[in-house]
Each structure stands twice: as structure tokens, then as C-alpha cells.
Design a protein around this nucleic acid. Structure first.
Length: 301
DNA sequence: TATCCGTGGAA
DNA sequence: TTTCCAAGGAT
């Protein structure tokens, strides 16, 4: 396809990226594949601005998988802070343990091996291969799906995920050589994050506006099915967040009445607390109080 | 495949 | 104020 030539969509997006990519900490020279992996976990559904300071502190404290593996769950969850979805922190911890124990403390570069690790799915595995190791691996995230939907297919937005087809679409855009393909992958994501945004895309700033199928079609509005917007107020997610917030802030085991104070609905509150125990995000001490995570220095696997 | 899993900033 | 949504993954 001509789109992989330097003048094509991929080539000009890469050129634009090299000229003005954001200076993000995990993109700086010297970042290890482990650093990339940590950033990808944190960036799953959490904006860049909130990840930056946490990533910097995290890498200072735990510069290798084995360093993180040696930390306690409570320390890991506290360092995760309020990035949200704290189960990601536990999965990162578990992935670090597996990497330390089974992979010589070296982050795997093979996509299939990466996907076998806790918390690493199709996106994160390919992001680590591409950004951590400079390999040719189609990276499909929400940004890339939107860019492809518009620039290639002329649609206003990406519809529901079509995993195989999405992967094939992006694969067709990548040049054959590893290093250049990795740059294109980063560039497509950056374009979606900065220019080809979900609402109010900045087409005048776009390096490929002249051959964007969506622009050519007159920027038609997206008419397909919308992913339902998740509510938050009143959900178990909110209640779990409030409970966890108390446990994170405490430096000693917490009595139940203190947790009871965060939510009026008793049955929902108890159900949520129980789910935190099941998830390993909280633990009950022998005397019936509650603490963050587990007390064991290592979360077993 | 649809739903669940946190949090907070911006429009 | 409400709504949207931000580099997903597991079940």
C-alpha cells in the first residue's frame, strides 16, 4: 500500500511525531522496557497528566521487576494512590513477580509471552514490544482506532471493537522495518491523543488532513452505536473507592465503624467491603479490623 | 459480548 | 450541573 511510503499517512504521521511529540517521562532516552510496562499499566484508562508524577516516584522506588516484587501489597497500593482501578496495581505487582521468578527479571519482548502475564492484554503486550523494544507490533488502542476509523474508513468515530479487523487495519499501515514501525505506532497514538481527538478534532493541525477519508467525506457525524457511558455515583465502584480511600490513609488497622461511616447503605457497603477482601485489596486482621492489601511481604502467585 | 472495575478534569 | 471520557483487562 502506498500509505506506508514516506509521503503516505504513516510516514507523515511519523514525521510529525518526530518533530513535536510530547516530552513524556517514559519516552525519554534510557527508559527501560520495565519503565514502559509500568507506564502502560498506569495509562490504562487514566490520563497522562495524572500518571506522570506517580510513574516518576514509582520508577525511583522500584526500578526493576524484582524490586517491585519484593514490596508489600500495601506499599504498592499506596504508591498507586488515586490513579483509579487499583486492581491494576495488584496485577502489575503479580506481573513483576512472574517476570522476576520466571523470566530472569527481564521483561519479555514476545507478544504472546507478554499476554500470558497478569494485567497484560492485546494492547499492553504490543505497546511493550513496540515502545520498550522497538519492534514492529500493531498497537491498537482507543486513539488508534479513532484515527483509523476517520483517516482510513471515513467514519466519524470508531464503532465497537472488531479485534481482528482492527489489528489488520493497523498492521496494513505499519512499514516493514521494526524501528520505523514502532515510531509509526507511537505516532498514531499521539495523533489520536493530541489532534484527532474524540470531540473537537484539530484538523487544521493534522499532518494527514489532505488525505483523510473523513475530511474528504465532509466530516460526517458518527451514527453507529455508542458505547454506553458508565455511571459512577451510587455504584459499587464509588463505594469501593471510598472504603479503599480510608484504608490507604490509615497507618494502623481500621475499625469497622470507621468504614461504615463512608456510605449509608449498609448492605451495599458490606458487599463492597467483602469484594475488596476477595480481590485482595483489603484484608481483615485476626482481631477483626481492616488493613490495605495483605500483610505478607510477597503476594504469592 | 456486555458489564464491571476508580478517579477527576474539561466542555 | 451534568455529561463525557482518558494509552484496557478480565470475566
Amino acid at each position: 500500500m502506498t500509505s506506508v511510503l514516506p509521503g503516505g499517512l504513516a510516514g507523515r504521521t511519523a514525521e510529525w511525531f518526530r518533530a513535536q511529540a510530547r516530552d513524556l517521562p517514559w519516552r525519554r532516552a534510557g527508559t527501560t522496557p520495565w519503565g514502559v510496562l509500568v507506564s502502560e499499566f498506569m495509562l490504562q484508562q487514566t490520563p497522562v497528566a495524572r500518571v506522570e508524577p506517580v510513574w516518576l516516584r514509582w520508577m525511583e522506588e522500584w526500578p526493576t521487576p524484582s524490586a517491585l516484587a519484593a514490596a508489600s501489597r500495601a506499599d504498592v497500593l499506596r504508591a498507586w494512590g488515586k490513579l483509579g482501578y487499583p486492581r491494576r496495581a495488584m496485577r502489575l505487582h503479580a506481573a513483576a513477580e512472574a517476570i522476576a521468578a520466571d523470566h530472569g527479571d527481564r521483561v519479555p519482548s514476545d507478544v504472546a509471552v507478554l499476554e500470558s502475564l497478569p494485567g497484560i492484554g492485546s494492547y499492553t503486550a504490543r505497546a511493550v514490544a513496540a515502545f520498550g523494544y522497538g519492534l514492529r507490533a500493531p498497537v491498537v488502542d482507543t486513539n488508534v482506532r479513532r484515527v483509523v476509523a476517520r483517516a482510513v474508513h471515513g467514519a466519524g468515530d470508531a464503532g465497537p471493537a472488531r479485534t481482528r479487523a482492527d489489528l489488520a487495519d493497523v498492521d496494513a499501515l505499519l512499514p516493514p522495518e521494526d524501528a520505523e514501525a514502532a515510531v509509526v505506532s507511537a505516532a498514531l497514538m499521539e495523533l489520536g491523543a493530541v489532534v484527532c481527538t474524540a470531540r473537537a478534532p484539530r484538523c487544521p493541525l493534522c499532518p494527514v488532513e489532505s488525505d483523510c477519508a473523513w475530511v474528504a467525506a465532509g466530516r460526517p457525524e458518527y451514527t453507529g452505536p455508542r458505547r454506553p457511558v458508565q455511571g459512577f455515583a451510587g455504584t459499587d465502584r464509588q463505594v469501593r473507592g471510598k472504603l479503599l480511600d480510608v484504608l490507604r490513609a490509615a497507618d494502623a488497622p481500621v475499625d469497622k465503624p470507621l468504614l461504615d461511616a463512608v456510605w449509608a447503605d449498609g448492605p451495599q457497603r458490606d458487599r463492597c467491603l467483602d469484594s475488596l477482601l476477595v480481590d485482595g485489596l483489603a484484608e481483615q486482621t485476626p482481631d477483626g479490623r481492616f488493613v490495605l492489601g495483605g500483610t505478607a511481604p510477597h503476594a504469592g502467585h
